[in-house]
């Protein structure tokens, strides 16, 4: 069993590099920047249907758009407890970092790269995960100040704290940014994550240890 490098300090520097390459729009030329604290709802399952957790959390998101470039970063702190049907004995806490840098290739479409890093506390209560994101995003203006987006990201090169590999990992999301009044924005986001993790404990052959998470982030933010 090998420990994944993403679970350590490797992901954050990669995120910084990606954001730096993407030109994080904090300067005067930024056309749009939103910073929002968020409340989070989460559902997490691992290995089998008996290992299910549900919980909530809080965090923050920052999004920006400058010309054809866009970027977003979100950090949430989750508290997950076993559900009634769960066989898990105790819950755990997790911290998840997501970051994207996108480039518009058409009026409603962009390609994006980013990172995903989730760490569990206690460390072995659940799998910590680190991966690169590569995907596409479609964004559409519903009306003045309202934007809806749909994204599909392939999670490349995933690393797990418990080892293993995942040939197929995907993350899809639905996002909404609505200007409620003046600079006040409502920012909500849904993310569904499916990781087909396989492990080979003791070299006896690979077994499935999938991970599945649904996440909803709800926030009120300030737009600049």
């Amino acid at each position: 069993m090998s420990r994944g490098g993403w679970g350590g300090g490797g992901v954050v520097p990669v995120a910084m590099v990606l954001l730096g390459l993407g030109g994080w729009p904090t300067g005067a030329g930024a056309q749009h920047l939103t910073v929002a604290p968020q409340a989070v709802l989460v559902d997490y399952r691992e290995v089998s249907s008996g290992l299910r957790y549900s919980g909530s959390g809080f965090g923050g998101v920052a999004t920006g758009h400058h010309g054809k470039l866009s970027a977003a970063a979100s950090v949430v702190r989750l508290t997950l407890d076993p559900t009634d049907q769960s066989t898990a004995g105790a819950g755990f806490k997790a911290t998840q970092l997501d970051a994207w840098v996108g480039y518009d290739v058409a009026s409603h479409a962009s390609v994006e790269v980013g990172i995903l890093r989730r760490t569990a506390d206690p460390e072995f209560a659940a799998q910590s995960l680190g991966a690169l994101r590569v995907g596409v995003r479609s964004t559409y203006d519903l009306g003045p100040g309202a934007t809806v987006s749909f994204r599909v990201d392939y999670l490349a090169a995933p690393k797990f704290s418990g080892g293993g590999r995942a040939a197929f990992s995907i993350d899809l999301g639905l996002g909404l940014d609505v200007r409620l009044a003046g600079r006040l924005h409502g920012v909500v986001d849904y993310a569904f994550e499916r990781v087909n993790r396989k492990t080979n404990p003791g070299g006896t052959g690979e077994i499935d240890a999938p991970i599945q998470q649904t996440l909803a982030r709800l926030g009120l933010g300030i737009g600049f």
Binding site: R45, Q212, T214
Partner: peptide, 26 residues
Amino acid sequence: GLESGSLGASSKRELGVVGAAALVTG
């Protein structure tokens, strides 16, 4: 489509919240 059969149906609470917000906004 992406739900794992071995993990069972995922919670629709999260999608329900965000989807409802998107539909109301639309």
